[in-house]
Design a protein around this nucleic acid. Sequence first.
DNA 1: ATTCATGTTGTGAT
DNA 2: TATCACAACATGAA
Length: 243
Amino acid sequence: MPEGPSLVLLREEAQRFVGKTVRAAEGHAAFDAARMTGRRVRDVRTWGKHFLLGFAGFSLRVHLLLFGSWLIDARKPRPPRLALRFARGELNFYGCSLRYIEGELDQAYDWSADVLSDAWSPRAARRKLLAAPERPVCDVLLDQDIFAGVGNIIRNEVLFRIRVHPESRVAALPPDRLSALIREARRYSFEFLDWKRAGVLKRNWQVHARQSCPNCGRKLRTTYPGRTRRRTFFCPRCQPRYA
DNA sequence: ATTCATGTTGTGAT
DNA sequence: TATCACAACATGAA
């Protein structure tokens, strides 16, 4: 579930708790959930795949990892990893990683890296990419320091849309493909968000978990390339490899 | 029942 | 030191 756009939806749903006071916070013993009890939520933000609940002086960071989920005003049969109760309503997290971030979030995060942020900077992304010329594009797209919020689905879809083979190296990309990579990482992330919100995301996948190329009809290839070894779908005909 | 997957971090080997 | 392979975590869908 949790690529960047899904976190935006969580942020929107959690917005109603801003200004409210945590009446009870329960979690597993290893995490000091009680620290939030009696404290007022200042703001709700996201950075890439991080969900951030701001309190005076510190923030809660929730990372949903691969299987994480949340429920608002509802519970699963299993106890939540973290339950935040307010006078009206509750926010429950499952299967996630919890941490506190001390101080201001603007110190802790490079907001220009978040593809879904107003502060997103294509120029900063380009600079980071040019500093990593030998890396394959399949790896850099998942690099959260460059493209925070991009996950495996977005990566596969972006590479198909810009017609670039996943194992192309950054330095070998023609200038217009490098620009397209940066532009499409953000553009498709918002498209993902719209489709997710409308409940039509899967049906709009062009290559992810698909069998054949929507452009030429050939059978798609599935590989596990690069450092990350994540499942990669691509069309060997429509996505030329720039070595 | 078993396998797999929208993710990240830490450990130990090379 | 750098890079890697792998484990660990957790959960719902196919």
